[in-house]
Amino acid sequence: MLNDITMGQYYPVDSPVHRLDPRIKLVDTLLFIVAVFLAQSFVGYLLLFGFLYGVTRLARVPFRMLLKGLKPLRIILILTFLLNLFFTPGEKTLVAFWGIRITLEALRQAAFYSLRLAFLVAGTSLLTLTTSPVALSDGIELLLSPLKKIHFPVHELAMMMTIALRFIPTLLEETDKIMKAQMARGADFESGNLIARAKAMVPLLVPLFVSAFRKAGDLAMAMESRCYHGGEGRTRMRVLKLTRNDGLALGAMLLLIALVVLEGVLL
């Protein structure tokens, strides 16, 4: 169970999409977001949906995994839909009750905006479903590396991400242990009102913080003893190389944008 949480959403299968360079996938995701905003009609959305569905199949990820990614956002989605539905002005009244008028324009806009949100989330889910957190942090580091020129701490950021990923399972294990130990002393984490429950967390959180700080101190010393001195003069064992497929992936995304724009102009 602990392992699930570590890997986040990552769906570990081997597919052409999984094998793509994480940099390309990050860029593609950004371009997809652009495409979503460029799409002006439901025909454009149909194109987006087709693309998303196709890539999901190619990635050998079950489509319901994408829908699962939408679940945490369902309240926002519904809210977006309802707000647009009730508060968009329009001409053609569909129904009217209790002084509220729902128009065709409102219905169209409500559907449009909530779908846009759904596309944004599904697109980024596809990235995290097909890219391991490690690859993702590598990709971010490399993409941001031009920022080093303006002294943006790119290397430090990436190192922090790696260490966080490394210690999440360890800290989860520790949480489980401390929780059990306090329960053996009669602690109750489950009953009581909100304040009582928050108070009950103290015996869990204090030891956890103490442990996290100790770990940080130990780790800093271990890293120093292994000659760590920041990003300066550092080399990497794993070097990302672009392949033909990466070019194809970028091309496909540009084609999608072109189609979406074209469709907007033509219709």
Partner: peptide, 10 residues
């Protein structure tokens, strides 16, 4: 009493 019980002090 768990292993390394000193880690539960708070």
């Amino acid at each position: 009493v768990f292993q390394y019980p000193e880690y539960q002090l708070f």
